[in-house]
């Protein structure tokens, strides 16, 4: 059996007196496509944020690729475990500012062709590169944000209800892109409320009241 990409042991997260996650133990295989479902407020997003190191667990251990999460330098880890927000914020003035950022933080020169290929992968036109972000629709913003996350291929993609509120066509574009990354070996963990996504899940992890309800099936 290969080493899991995530080995989560007795994970707990408490915010003040509010116990949000409790006793979560799960192993996630490399290349898995895990769907995380559960009622609102059950702790799904918190779980994803803990995996992304945007929150620090108050109990238990999370291992990534065999090493404790805490042993990785955070920027290195987060570039490999890429978290996509449900309602992303684009920054700067234009789409270009957003697609430049992943290059900037890696001290690399902006590769315009790579950025344009990224836009094309989510069916956005090349002219959009210099479009002001205030002119974008919600679906376009979500797609630009996704490209921003995927310009440099991560090992893991954490998707926090990113298709919620998108129209059917945009959902299709986003799903196709994610599918292509899965096929290239990227581990995908997605939080969703969407019944069709839950029904189509390869592996399902249900969280209720901060605990795993049904373990992911192998």
């Amino acid at each position: 059996m290969t080493e899991p990409i995530f080995d989560v042991q007795r994970l707990g997260y408490k915010n003040g007196s509010n116990q949000i996650l409790q006793g979560i133990t799960v192993q996630i295989e490399k290349g898995a496509n895990l769907t995380i479902a559960g009622p609102s407020g059950s702790g799904k997003s918190t779980f994803l944020r803990v995996l992304a190191t945007l929150l620090t667990p108050t109990e238990g251990v999370v291992k990534f690729a065999g090493k404790k999460q805490s042993t990785y330098p955070k920027p290195v880890y987060r570039q490999q475990v890429s978290y996509c927000f449900q309602q992303p914020t684009l920054f700067g003035e234009t789409v270009r500012d957003n697609l430049q950022f992943p290059f900037e933080i890696r001290n690399q020169k902006f590769d315009q062709n790579k950025a344009l290929a990224g836009l094309d992968s989510v069916e956005l036109k090349a002219e959009m590169l210099d479009q002001p972000i205030i002119e974008l629709s919600g679906g376009e913003k979500q797609r630009v944000a996704l490209v921003r996350n995927l310009l440099f291929k991560p090992q893991v993609l954490l998707l926090d209800e990113i298709s919620a509120g998108l129209d059917v066509d945009t959902k299709g574009v986003v799903h196709r892109l994610i599918q292509s990354y899965r096929e290239s070996g990227v581990t995908v963990l997605s939080v969703t409320h969407d019944e069709s996504e839950i029904a189509a899940a390869d592996d399902l992890l249900r969280i209720r009241d901060g605990k795993i309800e049904v373990p992911a099936h192998e």
């Binding site: 920027p75 992303p88 950022f101």
Partner: peptide, 20 residues
Amino acid sequence: RQGVLERLALGANLKQASKH
């Protein structure tokens, strides 16, 4: 706050996340 969180999630260090 959200913009800073997104920069951090993308793997920015503190200086890069706060530069603007």
